[in-house]
Design a protein around this nucleic acid. Structure first.
Length: 582
RNA sequence: GGGGACGUAGCUCAGUUUGGUUAGAGCGCGUGCCUGUCACGCACGAGGUCGCGGGUUCGAGCCCCGUCGUCCCCGCCA
């Protein structure tokens, strides 16, 4: 194919089919770069060799689809193009057949050419012709093949589960599918195959996987799509260390497609430690800048905001931005803005310069304390301390966000690709939801609490303190997977439903089939779901999931190419018994 | 549900600050010339609902109001 010809093919007669990537017409001499998914080859047409074919080549335009027969020739030394793998040769055409003509494309089929995202999405089939996109999807293919091979070798069966299934309103909003046979009733598209994979464990398929589409009707972000793909894994009789090891092996085989060698075992961090040190449950550990506790140091201050924070169970914490004392007022204000988005009321600064410390806290805390803070946090000349006070979670998340912003500004994430994996473990089982005024499952309601908290009645007594056997896999500050050991006893499952505020009746309606299944000999089991799209985004170095999904949707759920969603015929609605409210 | 950025030629953008003659550039496209180009070169040319609607004004790409679209963030995402 086009990208494969080398000097060793000299003299061979070849047939190439592909797209005209570029035409360079020098009059009696025409070059075209012929492109297929493997790359480019230069084709030559000369009047002194074949007047007729040269005449035909004059008609060629960009993106015409052509078939060419010709002879591979080694190029003269001074005409070799070192920028292309095929640059040592060219094909002198003896036959040219135009298989199809093409209109001028709305944007060039070329990498490094900025084109707005909506135009690219409207003409996605053209966007996908670009070499970078071709490379992304080739790699995605290699990754799924590697995953299938690895999991097969480990004894997993790939088993499909239904897309038309039951709505289970816990969690994300469901996509609903109306039933024609059962007017007024609906299927839901799965948010994940969670219950089915657990039922497969009940069925005795003790190792299952599936590369499967999941659907969630929540607002889209750069790292989210309404439909996305998971590598879904579940196994029975789990041993957590062995399971982590085998998932690390899977990740290693996936990253081998990028010729990356990973060091494992991956580090583990508890949820609370991740929050305390990095202000997020998905820390980016490619750089340090950990959050520091100033509580003990400012413990005696009379400064009202800090006094109040400490007296009401809150915290005073900081990060030390290396070399950022040079930041202007505008820059520190911007960081404060970030902190405010996450709820912090202010972001104080201490700049350590060769002339001493300068701080927005100088009047409030007094110079000696400011100097002491700088010393205690080991801030050096040129460093900038950023300080927030208030409710623990707010301070953690605000400083976590500021930490990332500083890292981006200071280009701490650039340079050669680094793969910093991390298991985050020991999540709380429940989280209080202000909107719902009840506890909700932090992972999902099928996650097992730790044994001790099941036995000691903590589920009923103090749900907020129950620990879960849940874990996330984090890569470079992005959550690429999450899973848990599941509940395999129906009585425990019933207690968890109750803690979530589900009445017996509701639990029976929604999950009755599942509670019943748990009573017929369910093995202990657990698993994980890896976000394939996010893994691919990181692996290909793309800024957005959209570059690794062939036909993605916009932030408002629209497919700009097919123009879906779209209205449907009245006839279709009538059949379903659906009336559209104005 | 909330906040922010953007929308001018096929594409990427300038022009908006301070309203004023015929709205520009690069790339692409068309035609012609060109036998060693490879982001070919040179010459000429075509190409505009300044997202859409309304308002202010003698006059709006520029000001005001509304609206649509794209992107990013908070909320949301078990």
């Amino acid at each position: 194919m086009c990208g494969e010809l080398r000097a060793s093919h000299e003299g061979q007669r070849v047939t190439l089919m592909g797209w005209v990537a570029r035409r360079r017409d020098l009059g009696q001499l025409i070059f075209i770069d012929l492109r297929d998914r493997t790359g480019l080859t230069q084709i030559v047409f000369k009047t002194d060799i074949d007047r007729e074919i040269h005449e035909k080549a004059e008609q060629l335009r960009t993106e015409f689809v052509v078939a060419i027969e010709g002879t591979v020739l080694r190029r003269e030394a001074n005409t070799v193009n070192r920028n292309h793998p095929t640059g040592e040769i060219e094909v002198v055409a003896s036959l040219l057949k135009v298989l199809n003509e093409a209109q001028t494309t709305p944007f060039p089929i070329d990498d490094n050419i900025a084109t707005s995202e909506d135009i690219r999405l409207k003409y996605r089939y053209l966007d996908l012709r670009r070499p970078k996109m071709q490379a992304n999807f080739r790699q995605r293919h290699e990754v799924t093949m590697a995953a299938r091979k690895y999991l097969n070798d480990q004894g997993y069966y790939e088993i499909e589960t239904p897309f038309l299934t039951k709505s289970t309103p816990e969690g994300a909003r469901d996509y609903l599918v109306p039933s024609r046979f059962h007017r007024g009733k609906f299927y839901a598209l799965p948010q994940s195959p969670q219950l089915f994979k657990q039922l497969l464990m009940v069925s005795g398929f003790d190792k299952y996987f599936q590369i499967v589409r999941c659907f969630r009707d929540e607002d889209i972000r750069a790292d989210r799509q309404p439909e996305f793909t998971q590598i879904d894994i579940e196994h029975s009789f789990p041993h957590l260390d062995e399971f982590f090891m085998s998932i690390e092996g899977l990740i290693a085989s996936i990253f081998a497609t990028s010729r990356a060698t990973l060091s494992h075992p991956f580090p583990r961090l508890s949820y609370s430690e991740a929050m305390r040190r990095y202000g997020t449950d998905k820390p980016d550990t490619r750089f340090e800048m950990e959050i520091l506790d100033l509580g003990p140091l400012v413990g005696k201050t009379e400064f009202v905001p800090y006094r109040k924070a400490l007296d009401t169970g809150g915290v005073v914490r900081a990060i030390c931005a290396k070399g950022c004392a040079k930041y202007s007022r505008k820059q520190t204000d911007e960081l404060a803005e970030t902190a405010k988005i996450f709820g912090a009321s202010a972001l104080a600064t201490i700049k350590v310069t060769s002339e001493g410390v300068q701080s927005t806290l100088e009047k409030a805390l007094g110079k000696p304390l400011v100097v002491e803070l700088a010393a205690a946090t080991h801030a050096l000349v040129g460093d900038l301390l950023l300080i927030a006070a208030g409710e623990k979670k707010v301070v953690e998340e605000s400083l976590g966000a500021v930490r990332l912003q500083v890292a981006r500004q200071e280009k701490l994430l650039e340079g050669p690709a680094r793969w910093n994996f991390l298991w985050v473990t020991d999540f709380p089982m429940f989280e209080w939801s202000e909107t719902d005024q009840r506890f909700v499952a932090m992972h999902h309601p099928f996650t097992s609490p730790v044994e001790e908290d099941i036995e000691n009645g903590l589920i009923e007594r103090d749900p907020g303190k129950v620990r879960a056997k849940a874990y996330d896999l984090v890569l470079n500050g992005s959550e690429i997977g999450g899973g848990s050991i599941r509940i395999h006893r129906w009585d425990v499952q019933a207690r968890v439903f109750k803690a979530l505020g589900l009445s017996d009746e509701e639990a029976r309606q929604r999950f009755g089939f599942f509670l019943e299944a748990l009573q017929y000999g369910t093995p202990p089991h657990g698993g994980i779901a890896l976000g394939l799209d996010r893994i691919m985004t990181i692996l290909t170095g793309e800024p957005s999931l959209r570059s690794v999904i062939a036909f993605p949707k916009t932030a408002t759920y629209v497919d700009l190419m097919t123009e879906s969603p779209s209205p449907v015929d009245q006839h279709q609605l009538d059949e379903l018994g659906i009336v559209i409210k104005p």
